[in-house]
């Protein structure tokens, strides 16, 4: 019986395909796209000013408020700036580290290094950010305590602190895909470039970078999108600054339609980002 079903299935690839696709597609479309769609629809609704209940009546008031108030343009630009900085910093740290791990370290040490890079992922997000509060506290923090004597001082709480904190949190998400990409490159390729007289930087720019570019993009998806939606780091070490996530979070509880309106911004940004990423062909290797 079992065998006959298997044979029957084997002869009908369409049925097998449908069986494979049904559950995941249903899940992603109903649970995820459905929820997302409902949220975007809510952006066009309004609330009863007395009870705070959502009223399902189409209007563009929220979009009007969002587009006419310069505060929201500021927070979008600020958040984008932070997301780009975090992505660049992570890339600058991650490329040499991943290169060392994959190509220079002895195979035995490779695993230890990977483990060392992965470990902080298990310490709670919040605890790490609070540790950065202790690190960055002006004058009395760890940073001034260690680096103060050589003239480097903490930037205090604000934009730079957010960038440092988020770069710290997302760095492993950038290192891992680049490491995986580099590991697949045959050593002979680098040797060949060196043998042909290319200097290290030239080899890096013309040989390695194009080959790991898809991995770099894959990593940037994490650093960029995680930064775009963050609101907790800004609360703890952001000083006076807020990010897009804070605005969404603030409005969510009392005025869902407006929160949904604000949420369309990161969705649009990520849609553009995905579109660009897709054009580079990196998505296929993601």
């Amino acid at each position: 019986m079992k065998r006959s079903i298997a044979t029957w299935m084997h002869k009908r690839p369409q049925v097998r395909l449908a069986a494979l696709l049904a559950a995941p597609t249903l899940w992603l479309v109903v649970a995820y796209l459905g929820a997302l769609g409902a949220l975007l629809v809510t952006a066009f609704f309004t609330i009863d000013s007395f009870t705070g209940n959502v009223i399902a009546k189409f209007n563009l008031g929220n979009f009007h408020d969002m587009l006419t108030d310069p505060a929201y343009r500021n927070v979008v630009l600020r958040t984008l700036g932070i997301a780009i900085s975090v992505t660049l910093i992570c890339a600058i740290f991650a490329i040499p580290m991943a290169f060392f791990m994959a190509k220079i370290a002895k195979p035995k040490n490779q695993k230890i290094l990977v483990a060392l890079v992965l470990t902080p992922l298990w310490a709670s997000y919040l605890v790490k950010i609070y540790a950065w509060r202790t690190m960055l506290e002006p004058r009395t923090g760890v940073m001034d305590w260690i680096l103060g004597p050589i003239g480097i001082h903490s930037p205090g709480f604000g934009g730079p602190a957010i960038i440092i904190g988020l770069s710290y949190l997302w760095l492993p998400y950038m290192i891992l895909p680049i490491y995986a990409g580099l590991e697949r490159l045959p050593n002979s390729l680098l040797d060949a470039s060196g043998d042909l007289g290319a200097r290290n930087f030239y080899t890096f720019r013309r040989v390695i970078l194009p080959l790991i570019f898809p991995s770099l993009v894959a990593g940037s998806m994490f650093t960029f999108s995680l930064t775009l939606g963050d609101y907790i780091t800004a609360q703890i070490i952001g000083g006076k600054l807020q990010m897009l996530g804070n605005v969404v979070y603030q409005n969510f509880s009392i005025n869902l339609p407006f929160a949904a309106t604000i949420a369309t911004i990161p969705v649009a940004i990520m849609a553009i980002y995905l579109w660009l990423v897709r054009r580079t062909g990196a998505l296929a290797s993601l």
Binding site: V29, V30, L33, G34, L36, G37, A38, L39, L40, V41, T42, F45, D48, F50, T51, N53, V54, I55, A56
Partner: peptide, 22 residues
């Protein structure tokens, strides 16, 4: 096609909002 599905799903479900009481 996918957006249409999402919007239909959303449309069906969001009509259940309660009218407000004052």
């Amino acid at each position: 096609a996918a957006s249409a599905v999402a919007l239909i799903l959303a449309g069906c479900s969001s009509s259940s909002h309660n009218a407000s009481k004052t």
